[in-house]
Amino acid sequence: MKILPSLLALLVVTPTLFAETLKINGSTTVNLPAAEAAEILRVEQKMDIQIDTQGGSSGGISMLGDGLIQIGMASKPVSDDDRAKFPKVKFDEIHVGQDAVAIIVSKDVWDSGVHALTKQQIQEIYESKITNWKDVGAKKSIRIAFFNKEPGRGTWEVFAHWVYGDPKKAPQVSFPEVGGNEETRNKVSSTRGALSQLSSSWADGKKVFALGIKGDDGKVVDPTNENIANKSYPLSRPLFLLTNGEPTGAARTFVDFMLSDRGQELVKKHGYMRLKDLGK
């Protein structure tokens, strides 16, 4: 029993060796390559980097705004509202990759013949005007089980932006909510008639299936890398590192690493598009 307090005392007095701890928080989507980059930098550069994913993209933006972290991770652009909320903070968006939001369904829906939806159909599903897959071309009657991404997630914002032009114009709906990407994939794959929004890199085509988007001309655009790169797939989104003004010090090192060839390989490894793939 006596050991514990002395251990504690030891911890408290351990001198500060590294003054600069780099704190990063935000989107779980950006987290994957960023966390791995942090692991490399910790070993190679002896940097002290802490990464967390609380509150998703919005968590990253608001914590950067509050000055709690030096780098935010976001899978959506910083909105004017965000900027208005933190007038003193100069949000600097550093584009490190591109991802697409896929509209994903469970296997039974895919097998029943639904492989694409129009924007109109998706909107009506979101507003509960369509509640059965049969109404959008399925061979049999399956109820639609919609899992909505929870508020603050970049995925949801991108989705709402595409359907309604502005997330704030999205109507009031209440669906079961999902948070993380694995949670989404897990729940969709184990539920009949399931539909959700998910980072396309997670749509493996085995457990969950990404629907194509049917345009007005009847042409179907799938979320393939090519379609994301040439912007014909509409639900694509940039992945950002956010800093307050030009990044300096440790933040600079981190950002530079993410933009380097090795950092970009990590982006690719986790299924996202590199800047190079976008023609940048």
Binding site: L17, A35, A38, I49, D52
Partner: peptide, 11 residues
Amino acid sequence: TIFAGATLPKG
């Protein structure tokens, strides 16, 4: 607590 990167606290 956070998800990754913290080691011994330094303050």
